[in-house]
Computed example of a mutant assay.
Amino acid sequence: MLTVLVVDDQVLIRAGLAALIRAAPDLDVVGEAASGEEAVRLAARTRPDVILMDIRMPGMDGIAATERILAAPGPSKPKVLILTTFDLDEYVYNALRAGASGFLLKETTPQRLLAAIHTVAGGDTLLAPAATRRLIEAFLPVRDPAPDAGGPARTPDPLTGREAEVLVLVGRAMSNKEIADHLVVSESTVKTHLNRAMAKLGLSSRAQAVAYAYEHGLVTPGILDS
């Protein structure tokens, strides 16, 4: 059974989400938090599989709470699913950059919400790679390409050449299957390289890996690869 922590400062929304989740046979609510500070405390105490996180809350917001929760020591990290009223804004980008596994609008259907919990719990990003790329390009400051931008990307120090190559392709909005076809390897090999790269770089989600590739010049915003 998957365990869920619900975080929202509006009591009716929080109670409604918790009731919906408790009604599902394979989900259990282990806590409800009305603020980012409370979310951090409850996450440490209950260690949920998934956290439904509101962004705009008094005091510590959902972005800061996500950063604190995912930075906490422990053998496993929860998956953070952002719930927001605002579509594709800088708050969502910052949450993905902080390590959230995806986002949903609060107007989503109950069935979609329950499916999303299972999606992120399974390690997948809820946001499609191409949509992640558009989101990041919209809010990442435009930077000048590196002098050797036309050549191979520089390998970040902790990574092997193949791990860096996979990271670049993830940044270019390619799925694991597309990367596997491009490199002529299996999808499981791609997942292994990506997981190792993310572990070495301290990244906790695919969306965060895309943001890293952009921010470190491995992929240039606004320039599509031929």
Score class of each variant (00 low, 15 high):
M1A: 04
L5P: 11
V6N: 12
V7E: 12
D8N: 12
D9W: 07
D9V: 10
D9M: 10
V11S: 15
R14K: 14
A18P: 10
A18S: 15
A19N: 13
A19F: 12
A23H: 07
D28K: 04
V29H: 00
V29W: 01
V30R: 09
V30F: 08
E32A: 14
G36K: 06
G36N: 08
E38D: 15
V40W: 05
L42F: 05
R45V: 08
P48A: 10
V50F: 09
I51E: 00
I55P: 01
P58T: 08
P58G: 09
M60T: 11
D61F: 05
I63Q: 03
I63L: 04
A64Y: 03
A64C: 06
A64F: 04
E67G: 03
E67Y: 04
R68T: 08
A71L: 00
A71C: 04
S76I: 13
L83P: 06
T85H: 07
F86L: 14
D87R: 11
Y91A: 15
N94G: 08
A95Y: 12
R97T: 06
G99S: 02
G99H: 04
G102H: 03
K106C: 05
E107V: 14
P110Y: 06
Q111N: 10
L113D: 01
L114V: 10
A115R: 14
T119S: 07
V120T: 08
G122T: 02
G122P: 02
G123F: 00
L126V: 02
L127Y: 00
L127H: 05
R134F: 03
L135T: 00
L135G: 05
E137T: 01
P141N: 11
V142A: 15
R143S: 15
A146S: 11
P147E: 03
P147F: 05
A149T: 01
P152N: 10
P152Q: 13
A153N: 02
R154G: 14
T155G: 09
G161H: 02
G171M: 07
E178L: 13
A180S: 10
H182C: 11
L183V: 05
V185F: 03
E187Y: 00
K191H: 08
H193I: 06
N195V: 00
R196E: 04
R196Y: 01
A197R: 07
M198Q: 11
K200W: 04
L201P: 09
L203R: 06
A207S: 15
E215N: 04
H216C: 01
V219Q: 03
T220A: 02
P221E: 04
P221N: 06
D225P: 02
S226N: 11
S226W: 02
S226E: 12
